[in-house]
Structure formats: C-alpha cells, structure tokens
C-alpha cells in the first residue's frame, strides 16, 4: 500500500501539488491520468523519493520515503523516469544487471546473473542482451529500461509514461508485459499514462489528477463516464462500448 498524507509541493510557478491524501492499494496496475501539467509525474517522482516533498508524508509498503534509508527503499520501490540518457555505453544485459545493485552492491553473483537472465527473457530481450543500448530501437530500449526496474525485484514499480514515443504495437506489447508482471510476479505497478483507453483496458484502478489534486480515483468502470472525463480533461469526451470494454472517444 502506498499512502500519501497531506502531501504538498510547489514545483515551479506552473505546477504546485496538493495537499494530496491518497491510498493506493497493493497489487495490480494503477494508472495516473490527467491533463498536461496536472502533476502526475511530480507525484510519481515524489513517491519514488527522487523529489522531496514540501509538506506531508509518503509511505510505501509501510516505510516513510523521506526517513527510510535509500538502500532499504531500493528493495521496496523502483522508479523509471521518462528521459534516460547515460554517458556510458552499456549493453542491455549490463543495464539490467544494474537492477541488482541494491542486493549485490555491484558484485554480481551467479544467482544475480540467473535473475538477470530471467527478466531479460521476461521482456523478450534474449536475442538482444549483448547489444549496446544505442544500437536498439526506441521500443527495445524502453523494454530494457523496464527490465532493469523489474530486475530490482521490488514490490512497487513506478513508471513515468513508459509508452511515450512507442508506436501502437510496442505500446500494446509493453502494457501486456506490465500486466503480466503484475499478475504473475505479484508486483504493484503505478504508471503514468496519457492514453485513457490504455488505462481503461490494462489498469485495475485509475487515478485522475488535475491541478495538483486527486480529481477522481476508482475502477476503470467508475472513471469511464462522459462527464467525469470531460471535466478532468476539459474537453468533450464520450464513452462507448467497444468490442473489448469501454472506449473513450474524444476526437
């Protein structure tokens, strides 16, 4: 369970957060949606302790993120941000291997190598594992980053717009992998998404963020209503029944 109590942050003149009170239950996928500049990413980075809060407290799995030792938190929660540029050249396998750092402190054991292999296979990167990141396509690289945070084997995985810059096929693949990680590996995944239809289809819960506040929180069925979405996104949205669940139409 992730608990936010009276969390507030003035990030810059455009984005200020809170006060936010929120409880995200463990298990499944929770999608954070909302208009640009609403504060989704800021919330996520604060939960992942990459950004400090001005006021309030955040607990992940019962641990306060501002007081718990970072190395202990690294075994509980992992976060992947949108922009990832590394100055060093790394192969996929080396990158995923960094996910073991909280356990191995950089000395990889046979067991670590074993675990690394499993997550590489989990994201279908087996054939690419010795390729350098700069030799991969955007979709493959994104999978490698996700493999790294999964390899960290944390209960909570936070992902900031992992579908950014992915085409339709790669977006679907990525969501299927995450779905699988939540179901089969029992991870709790919190994900910032822009496409409400992806959120509706793959997420177990949707949290709509607007103006630094939690506007709505509920199951996809509860969230997918015409006036709720129209209000949150400030644009007319109509929800219809598609062949595989509800669809939001907003074109």
């Amino acid at each position: 369970m992730i608990t936010l109590t009276d969390v507030a942050k003035s990030y810059n003149s455009e984005v200020s957060i809170g006060p936010v009170n929120l409880q995200l239950p463990a298990g499944g996928i929770t999608a954070l949606v909302g208009p640009n500049g609403a504060g989704k990413s800021t919330l996520l980075t604060m939960i992942g302790r990459l950004l400090g809060v001005d006021r309030g407290a955040i607990e992940v799995g019962g641990l306060d993120v501002s007081t718990t030792k970072s190395k202990d938190l690294a075994k509980i929660v992992s976060i992947l941000r949108q922009e990832n540029h590394y100055v060093t050249r790394l192969t996929v396998r080396q990158l995923v291997g960094f996910g073991r750092f909280p356990y191995s402190k950089g000395r990889l054991t046979l067991l670590d190598e074993e675990i690394i292999s499993r997550y590489i296979d989990f994201l279908d990167l087996g054939g690419l594992e010795d390729r350098y990141l700069d030799q991969l396509s955007g979709g493959q690289r994104q999978r490698a980053y996700v493999a790294m945070v999964l390899c960290q084997e944390t209960d909570y995985v936070l992902l900031d717009e992992p579908l950014n810059n992915l085409d339709m096929r790669h977006s679907v693949q990525m969501m299927q992998h995450l779905h699988q990680a939540a179901r089969e590996l029992g991870r709790t995944i919190i994900i910032v998404l822009h496409d409400i239809n992806f959120a509706c289809h793959y997420a177990d819960r949707i949290c709509a963020v607007k103006d630094g506040q939690i506007a709505e929180f509920g199951t996809p069925e509860e969230i997918m209503s015409d006036d709720l979405l129209s209000r949150v996104f400030e644009t007319p949205v109509q929800c219809i029944n598609g062949p595989r669940g509800r669809l939001a139409c907003f074109y």
Binding site: T91, R93, Q94, G97, L108, E184, L185
Partner: peptide, 24 residues
C-alpha cells in the same frame, strides 16, 4: 505466480548466462 524476492530463485538447468559485468 511468484512473489518478488523469492520469485526467481529456482535454479535452472540451462547454463548460466554471463555478460552483465564489465565485459559483455
């Protein structure tokens, strides 16, 4: 369905792959 942490600890029969350390 596995729990993280304990999830992938079962040793496999196949040969262990290397390459995450300094040289691929």
């Amino acid at each position: 369905i596995r729990r993280p942490g304990t999830a992938l600890r079962t040793p496999r029969v196949t040969q262990v792959r290397h390459g995450a350390s300094a040289f691929p």
